[in-house]
């Protein structure tokens, strides 16, 4: 058994907030650069150039790349041999509170969905926990902007709808999202599971590197097909028209019930922001 002082969680989460908001991950930058060189539309080239310039400026001058510094979504993997000396969730929330204050990030969380009073410190974080073997803790912190979260959708398809039904729902969702969700997107797709788990699968898939492929060739091929078809929609960067509507599609498939085919599409804007630390 390894005892972890939860103040370490607070410190790490606080310091992850800076790169989270101000440093666009290398795989995203590389993908945007490839997209820019593949565009044949001058407006699209210009918009992608602005997005890349924005990322450089954000890092250089410590300005959040987007004013929506997100709801803090946390994926926590806790080793079975770990013992925390106090409440780890409280420690993570304290890290968010300190980090969002220290780095001048926007506090975008209201305490109640209908009465809507801002909590003033961007807590609570939305934490998902998984138990794993070992004595380590892995924290993955995602800043999820709501321009794209609002354009995400879930549907309980019929088994008869099959792969084509999933395909059409994904395309419809991306098309409806259009300029509202700040394209080019990363499109996270959950398929299977239950009503609750399919949404989580879609969100988890957004943590994948943009240059990665699904390990199952069936789904890798489906991802390629979806990306190709999405990029025929013509939405383009910012919805002004162009080839680059999405940078990547990532699928996570789950076992499901004989009667169901749940599908969830979590849209992620081009500010794909996540950081991870292993303690």
């Amino acid at each position: 058994m390894r005892t972890i002082d939860t103040s370490i969680l607070t410190d790490r989460v606080r310091e992850m907030c800076r790169p989270l908001a101000m440093e666009l991950p290398a795989d995203v930058k590389a993908c945007l650069e490839v997209a820019r060189s593949a565009e044949n539309c001058t407006t699209a080239v210009s918009v992608l150039g602005d997005i890349l310039d924005n990322a450089d400026l954000a890092d250089r001058e410590s300005i959040p790349m987007c004013q929506d510094t997100g709801a803090a979504v946390v994926f926590l993997e806790v080793g079975l041999d770990v013992h925390f000396n106090s409440d780890p969730y409280a420690a993570i929330n304290e890290g968010i509170r300190q980090g969002y204050e220290k780095y001048y990030l926007r506090k975008s969380v209201v305490a109640d969905p209908l009465r809507r009073v801002n909590t003033g410190d961007n807590t609570p974080a939305f934490i998902n926990t998984k138990l794993v073997p070992g004595d380590k803790v892995k924290i993955t912190l995602m800043a999820k902007g709501f321009g794209s979260e609002n354009m995400s959708r879930l549907k309980m398809l019929m088994p008869a709808d099959g792969r084509q039904g999933v395909h059409d729902f994904v395309l419809e969702t991306v098309s409806m999202a259009g300029p509202n969700a700040c394209p080019p997107f990363m499109v996270g797709v959950g398929i299977g599971g239950t009503f609750d788990q399919v949404a989580l699968a879609a969100k988890r898939s957004l943590l994948r590197n943009l240059d990665s492929k699904h390990e199952d060739t069936y789904y890798a091929e489906f991802e390629s097909q979806l990306l190709h078809d999405i990029n025929q929609l013509g939405v383009g960067p910012q919805g002004f028209g162009g080839r680059t509507t999405a940078l990547a599609v990532a699928i996570e498939a789950l076992p499901t019930h004989i009667a169901g085919l749940p599908v969830a599409v979590n849209i992620q804007c081009h500010a794909i922001r996540h950081q991870e630390e292993i303690i």
């Binding site: 300005i63 987007c66 001048y104 926007r106 321009g147 609002n150």
Partner: peptide, 21 residues
């Protein structure tokens, strides 16, 4: 727009558009 807080010495923080609908 709902800007992020201004850091010391700056007029405003990050200040991009939010969804108009």
């Amino acid at each position: 727009v709902g800007p992020s807080p201004a850091a010391p010495g700056k007029a405003i923080g990050s200040a991009g558009p939010t969804s108009s609908y």
